[in-house]
Amino acid sequence: MTSRLLDSVPFLLVGVVHLLPLPGSPRGTRDVARIRERARRDAEAYREGGAHALIVENFGDAPFRKDGVEPHVIALMALVVEEVRESTGLPVGVNVLRNDARAALGIAVATGASFIRVNVHVGAMVTDQGIIEGRADETLRYRALLQSETEIWADVLVKHAVPLAPLALEDAAEETVQRGLADALIVTGPMTGRAPDPAELSRVRERLPTTPVFVGSGVTADNVARYIHAARGAIVGTWAKVEGKIENPVDPARVQRLCQAITRALPH
């Protein structure tokens, strides 16, 4: 999916569909129809605004489980991913927070999703869920077992976390690709809504020039030009919402504004 899209789109815009709290989570609701309707509306708003792809994640389920989620979470996310794919026609990814890559792969295979996002694919990170260890071996073997071509988009020193031992960003990126066999990399700021230093993306891109690198947080219409030459795309959630507030629905006008800013920043 990445190579095909990047061949036709110089800078890929991926919109995040933040699910409302799912049943069983601390703020969860039993109103499954409302969860599905909000997800569909957000997905269609991204498409209307010009996004090229989507990623669905159970963002409302905080505080997140460190790894495995319950079966009903997997089932409901699969329903939403399928609905989003059918209603928009866009490529869709899956992120099962905080780090359930097996569940994400299962959902992807069941629904035809194109990629999954893995927050900690290799190494170990200290997070608000405790120490999360990457399980690239399990994830890659499970993908092989499923005979799936689903891409693995892996975060490098992911937000809301610090490495268990000091590690340079570009070294972590190299490990993630060469030993973790990730298909694409995501570089974020320190937390949701915070942008990374463009120089950090440039260092990763220089170390791994053939691997797609995406900005994973903090991109806006005002700063996206800073990333055009360092990244192949951006994953955007917070800024695309009404008034830029993460709890609000997606605003297609803001998505369109971001797309226009990308177009202006691209070399002509």
Score class of each variant (00 low, 15 high):
residue 204 V to M: 13
residue 257 R to A: 08
residue 62 A to D: 07
residue 65 R to C: 04
residue 178 Q to M: 14
residue 101 A to W: 10
residue 97 L to Q: 07
residue 16 V to Y: 11
residue 139 T to P: 06
residue 262 I to Y: 02
residue 30 R to Y: 05
residue 19 L to H: 06
residue 15 G to R: 04
residue 31 D to A: 14
residue 99 N to R: 04
residue 104 A to W: 08
residue 115 F to M: 04
residue 223 N to D: 11
residue 147 Q to T: 08
residue 120 V to N: 12
residue 204 V to T: 13
residue 186 I to Q: 10
residue 114 S to E: 15
residue 254 R to L: 01
residue 171 D to T: 15
residue 230 A to T: 15
residue 165 A to N: 02
residue 84 V to P: 00
residue 179 R to G: 02
residue 261 A to I: 00
residue 136 A to V: 08
residue 95 N to Q: 13
residue 4 R to T: 05
residue 236 V to T: 10
residue 198 P to G: 07
residue 1 M to Q: 13
residue 90 L to C: 05
residue 68 G to K: 09
residue 172 A to M: 14
residue 25 S to N: 09
residue 142 Y to T: 13
residue 143 R to N: 07
residue 30 R to Q: 13
residue 196 P to M: 05
residue 104 A to S: 14
residue 261 A to P: 00
residue 235 I to D: 14
residue 148 S to Y: 10
residue 252 P to F: 00
residue 173 A to G: 15
residue 161 A to L: 08
residue 21 P to I: 05
residue 63 P to F: 06
residue 204 V to D: 13
residue 264 R to M: 00
residue 141 R to L: 13
residue 85 R to Q: 12
residue 193 G to W: 11
residue 129 Q to K: 01
residue 230 A to S: 15
residue 131 I to Y: 03
residue 263 T to C: 00
residue 29 T to P: 05
residue 196 P to Y: 12
residue 144 A to E: 15
residue 151 E to I: 03
residue 86 E to P: 00
residue 7 D to A: 03
residue 45 A to I: 09
residue 68 G to W: 01
residue 200 E to D: 15
residue 91 P to A: 14
residue 154 A to L: 08
residue 123 G to I: 03
residue 218 G to P: 13
residue 45 A to V: 07
residue 198 P to A: 06
residue 47 R to L: 06
residue 104 A to H: 09
residue 244 G to P: 02
residue 48 E to W: 00
residue 144 A to H: 08
residue 135 R to N: 10
residue 76 L to H: 08
residue 94 V to N: 12
residue 233 G to T: 03
residue 97 L to I: 03
residue 190 P to Y: 08
residue 115 F to E: 03
residue 135 R to Q: 11
residue 2 T to C: 02
residue 177 V to S: 06
residue 67 D to Q: 03
residue 178 Q to W: 14
residue 175 E to T: 14
residue 112 G to K: 08
residue 23 P to G: 04
residue 91 P to K: 08
residue 237 G to N: 10
residue 240 A to H: 01
residue 254 R to F: 06
residue 59 F to I: 10
residue 257 R to N: 01
residue 151 E to P: 06
residue 182 A to K: 05
residue 187 V to D: 10
residue 201 L to F: 10
residue 132 I to S: 04
residue 35 I to Q: 05
residue 207 R to T: 13
residue 166 P to N: 09
residue 126 V to K: 10
residue 139 T to D: 05
residue 193 G to H: 13
residue 112 G to I: 05
residue 116 I to A: 10
residue 111 T to Y: 04
residue 243 E to L: 02
residue 12 L to G: 00
